[in-house]
Amino acid sequence: MSKIVKTIAALLFPACLVFGAYVVLHGHLTPGGGFQGGAVMATAAALLLVAGIPLASKHEGRYHALEALGLGLFLFFAFVGLGAASGSFFFNALASHGFFGQAVAPGPNPGNLHTSGTIAWMNLAVGIEVLGGISVILYALREAARGEGDGKAEGDGK
């Protein structure tokens, strides 16, 4: 790809990541959540792929790990509910403990980021999983496209 495309992609890459992280972290306050925010963050990886910026291919193996880590974290926070007294699987045991553990103001209000307990943590876990999963798919497709046309230039594949 041309220098213009590469420059713009490099400029938009951090903005994509930050916006995706915002959607994930505010999943319990605004529309969106882990699935949507993770997809936005994966768009950043797609941007690098399409523009042919070589930085991304170094971290390819780590996306597998990210995906597994996300699913594991989600299950972990589901099991946390079992630890509480009178708790159950998926019980929101962290609603009054920890980083997201402040009490929510009743009624309509602009919202406080530090509320909702396990919901925020699960959003984070799902965001990590979706980011890893979609990136794995993108890189697998890129490798497959590269394998088909062996004579083609390296930066051409998507």
């Binding site: 999943g27 306050l29 929510v104 307990g117 919901i119 959003n123």
Partner: peptide, 12 residues
């Protein structure tokens, strides 16, 4: 659930 977003509280 402590979440302002009722949709998220149902989903998660």
């Amino acid at each position: 659930t402590g979440a302002n977003n009722v949709v998220t509280s149902i989903v998660f």
